[in-house]
Write a protein that binds this DNA or RNA. Structure first.
Length: 257
DNA sequence: ATGGCTCCGTTGCGGAGA
């Protein structure tokens, strides 16, 4: 059972790459962020033709999330019922006995801005809702673009980034509060290459110089974490023509006993 | 180097991303 998260930065532009990637990586579940498409423009038929069920919620220009699945999708929830939000940033569903939550956590712009306080309020409401969801669903996975690099190891130049958006103490504390609910950062369950990141700036040769940050994560509840046998970033599609600035991150679970 | 690149939209060049 493979679960993937990928911020595609416009599904309109990236659909061919998503379909190409799925051909060689036929994962069970793919959580997509930043579709930037209203629901009437979503390429449902193309995705279903590739052998995937799909659910989505979007808006014009910004945000938008989707879950693609080889298995039937049930009990779909759009956005956090505890948080009034016009922005479409969450879609959740039950798939193969697991509660899958696909989240595009706000960027936050910079500490001290309105967008940053929205990010922190959004994360606080996510934590409250997750607590309820975890009580209902022991097998839960939270996949997405968190816009948080949890640790200095997750930043190419921690000194240059100190206190900035994505790494600030407030954001890292919010991330640790999610972990404290009983979630595991599946990437850190395993030995990993030094300087593994999931996002690189389009500018200034960010990818070529590996000036990146690890902000896309697969968090697993304890029963799923126990079944997890790997978690890895796939840098291959970041090398393609006209790539997303994010790479897909995949966690693999062995079958339940 | 408070920038660079990419995407979007009342198709221009400004906002947003991270």
């Amino acid at each position: 059972m493979k679960l993937t998260t990928w911020n595609v930065n416009s599904l309109k532009v990236r659909l061919p790459q998503v379909l190409q990637w799925l051909q060689t990586n036929p994962v069970d579940v793919l959580c997509i962020q930043e579709t930037k498409l209203t629901d009437d423009k979503f390429p449902q038929a193309e995705i279903e033709a590739a052998g995937y069920h799909v659910v989505f919620t979007g808006q014009k220009t910004y945000n938008g999330v989707a879950i693609l699945s080889r298995h039937p999708i049930e009990d779909v929830q759009k956005n956090n019922p505890l948080f009034e939000d016009e922005q479409q940033r969450i879609i959740a569903a039950t798939i193969a006995g697991m509660r899958i939550i696909c989240a595009y956590i706000p960027n936050g712009q910079a500490p001290g801005t309105d967008k940053f306080s929205y990010k922190l309020r959004w994360l606080e409401a996510l934590e409250q809702w997750l607590q309820q969801e975890m009580a209902k669903h022991p097998n839960l996975a939270l996949l997405g673009d968190y816009n948080i690099a949890p640790d200095d190891r997750d930043v190419h130049d921690p000194a240059a980034w100190e206190g900035m958006n994505l790494v600030s103490p407030e954001e890292r504390t919010a991330f640790q509060r999610l972990i404290a609910l009983g979630l595991s950062d599946s990437f850190r369950q395993f030995e990993q290459p030094e300087k593994t990141f999931s996002w690189w700036d389009y500018r200034a040769l960010g990818f070529r110089l590996n000036k990146g940050v690890r902000i896309d994560h697969v968090l697993l509840s304890a029963p799923l974490a126990q079944r997890c046998i790997s978690c890895a970033v796939d840098k291959v599609p970041r090398k393609w023509e006209q790539p997303s600035d994010h790479a897909p991150v995949t966690a693999e679970l062995k079958p339940a006993e």
